[in-house]
């Protein structure tokens, strides 16, 4: 496989995953807040702030946020690099550059969503289209990922795409955890931090609420939620599960390389969290977030150097 095309496929996977997470985050965070048990969690400013902090790495420091603008920026503003529209355009551009390598069904599903997003009325979206739009996008991305599994050869192409998806998923899950963790902290004067409603929203943002309940048979708390989303290898969206999958994919690619540093780095990170307890993470939460983001970045840079720069 061409190094350039591998790069395209890796980023196609990353942007697909990122698009899905933002769409779901917008939907769940916005709609879950209406009947939140405490006043702050119900407040529009609180919800909008949470959205801005999740999607934008460097948000402008505005005292008052305007709902239509925040939602438009996060979803359909093509001048904002973090919008769903921008991320999906990049996913589609990368898919186009690797079009000869991917199945017709996969490309068609990507292209169809691209046209849906591009043709979606901005006016309708900001008035009453948020649920329709974000639900459609989430489902369509799931369909696209199903097409990757069912219509692509499970070879190095597949490994590269899923490497991108899993490393992006780990990063997005961490970002969402970080945002909701801070949301929970900011409402702790109204509600107990450990049993905050924000943990429920967090789990729903990552499509893990039902399975977490099934697993623990308890209401969400800070401890069981973080344990489930970070360390539980059976939760398909957990950081641990993403690292396990990424390890399988890099090992597949390593068969022909034998000495990829990226394989070593992924293995090392996986081992680190395999033996981690949630108490250790909770004690130094900010440090954990910074460390794991930096470790995931290091892995991505290493993959880029070793596989995409020939």
């Amino acid at each position: 496989m061409l190094a350039r095309v591998a790069n395209n496929l890796f980023w196609m996977g990353r942007y697909l995953e990122r698009t899905e997470h933002i769409a779901r985050y917008l939907n769940v965070n916005y709609f879950s807040s209406f009947d939140a048990p405490n006043e702050t969690s119900q407040s529009r400013q609180f919800v909008l702030n949470s959205i801005v902090r999740m999607v934008d790495d460097d948000p402008e420091k505005e005292t008052v946020l305007f709902e239509k603008k925040v939602l438009f920026d996060a979803a359909l503003n093509d001048e904002k690099i973090f919008s769903i529209k921008s991320y999906f355009r990049m996913a589609r551009d990368n898919a186009s550059s690797a079009r000869d390598m991917i199945s017709t069904e996969l490309y068609e599903s990507i292209n169809k969503l691209h046209h849906y997003i591009n043709n979606y009325s901005i006016e309708y979206f900001t008035e009453r289209g948020l649920d329709e739009f974000t639900t459609y996008v989430s489902k369509a991305v799931s369909q696209i990922k199903a097409n990757i599994v069912t219509t692509m050869m499970h070879d190095d192409t597949y490994a590269i795409i899923h490497l991108g998806i899993n490393l992006e998923r780990a990063t997005d899950v961490i970002r969402i955890i970080d945002t909701k963790y801070k949301d929970a902290l900011s409402v702790q004067n109204e509600t107990d931090f450990a049993t905050s409603y924000e943990w429920t929203i967090l789990l729903k943002c990552i499509q893990s609420f039902d399975m977490m309940k099934r697993h623990y048979k308890k209401a969400p708390t800070s401890k069981n939620t973080l344990d489930f989303l970070i360390l539980n290898p059976e939760c398909p969206k957990s950081v641990m599960s993403c690292l396990n999958n990424a390890k399988c994919q890099i090992d597949y690619l390593n068969k022909n390389h034998h000495s990829l540093s990226s394989a070593f780095l992924i293995g090392k990170l996986r081992a680190k969290y395999h033996y981690k307890r949630i108490n250790e993470i909770e004690i130094g939460f900010d440090k954990f977030i910074q460390e794991i983001i930096s470790e995931l970045d290091e892995i991505c840079i290493s993959i880029e150097d070793e596989l995409f720069k020939h």
């Binding site: 496989m1 061409l2 190094a3 350039r4 022909n256 020939h310």
Partner: peptide, 8 residues
């Protein structure tokens, strides 16, 4: 040569 992930 073409540049592939496995070298030229």
């Amino acid at each position: 040569y073409m540049k592939t992930i496995y070298g030229p």
